[in-house]
C-alpha cells in the first residue's frame, strides 16, 4: 500500500494535459444529449462501463507488467475513431513526461524510446503507476476515476452546471467505479494468464462518432 503516491497520481492537478479534454462531453452537450445533472450522471455511467472499463483494464495490465507494446496495439484495436486514437497518444505522451519527472523509472524511459509520439494514455498510466510503486488496482482506480471526473469537470465549464452537483454525481458513481476497477484487475490477471486478446473490448459508438465530429469543429472549448 502506497496510498500517498496514489493520491499524487490521481490528483486532477497532476500536470498531464487532462484539463483540455472533455472526454466526449462537449460533443454530447452540443448534440443535446447532455443537458443537466441527471444526463451528466448517465453519460458518465455509460462512459465508465464501456471505454472506461477498457481503459482501466489496459492500465491494470500495464501496471501488472504486461508488454506495453502489445497493450498499445490492443488499445488501438479497441479505439475505432482515429481522432480518439490521436488524443489517447497525445495524452499518453503528456503523462509520460509528468510521470518521469515525478517517478524516474526505466520502464517510463523505455516508453519514451519506443513511442516518441506517445503510447495510449491508459498504458502509460499503468506503467506510471508501477513506477510510483503502485499496483494494478491503483492504476485501474486512477483510470476509472479520471474517466468520469474529466467529463464532470468539463460540463461545469460547458453548461455552467453547479459544481457541487457535479461532484455529487461523482460520489454517486463511486460504487460503479469500485466495480469497474475490481473487474479491470481481474481482466488484467486473466490477460496475463491467457493472453492480451482476452481484455474487454466494450465500446460506446456515440463517443467514437461524436469524437470524429468534434475534431472537425472550427470552434470548441476542449481539445476532445
Amino acid at each position: 500500500m502506497n496510498r500517498a503516491a496514489l493520491l499524487v497520481l490521481a490528483d486532477g492537478r497532476f500536470p498531464a494535459g487532462g484539463y483540455a479534454h472533455s472526454g466526449g462531453a462537449e460533443a454530447a452537450v452540443k448534440a443535446g444529449r447532455l443537458t443537466d445533472t441527471a444526463s451528466l450522471e448517465e453519460f458518465c455511467r455509460g462512459r465508465l462501463h464501456t471505454s472506461g472499463a477498457v481503459a482501466a483494464s489496459l492500465a491494470a495490465a500495464a501496471a501488472l507488467g504486461l508488454d506495453p507494446g502489445a497493450l498499445d496495439r490492443a488499445a488501438d484495436a479497441r479505439t475505432p475513431s482515429p481522432a480518439l486514437r490521436a488524443v489517447a497518444r497525445r495524452l499518453g505522451r503528456q503523462l509520460v513526461r509528468a510521470a518521469r519527472a515525478a517517478w524516474p523509472h526505466q520502464r517510463l524511459d523505455a516508453l519514451v524510446r519506443d513511442f516518441p509520439k506517445g503510447a495510449h494514455q491508459p498504458v502509460v498510466l499503468g506503467v506510471a503507476a508501477h513506477a510510483a510503486g503502485l499496483g494494478p488496482e491503483d492504476a485501474a482506480y486512477c483510470s476509472a476515476h479520471e474517466g468520469v471526473s474529466g467529463p464532470a469537470t468539463a460540463v461545469v465549464r460547458l453548461l455552467g452546471l453547479d459544481p457541487f452537483e457535479a461532484t455529487a454525481v461523482l460520489a454517486r458513481l463511486a460504487p460503479d467505479v469500485d466495480r469497474v476497477a475490481r473487474d479491470a484487475v481481474a481482466a488484467a490477471h486473466r490477460a496475463a494468464r491467457e493472453g492480451i486478446d482476452t481484455l474487454p473490448a466494450r465500446s460506446a459508438p456515440l463517443l467514437e462518432i461524436g469524437a470524429e465530429a468534434h475534431a472537425a469543429w472550427p470552434v470548441r472549448l476542449f481539445a476532445s
Partner: peptide
Amino acid sequence: VETGACPHTAIRDDISANLE
C-alpha cells in the same frame, strides 16, 4: 495548442501540451 478554456493552465500549471 488547445487549452480547454484555460490558457493560464496551459502556460503555467500544466505546461505539458506546450512543451510538446
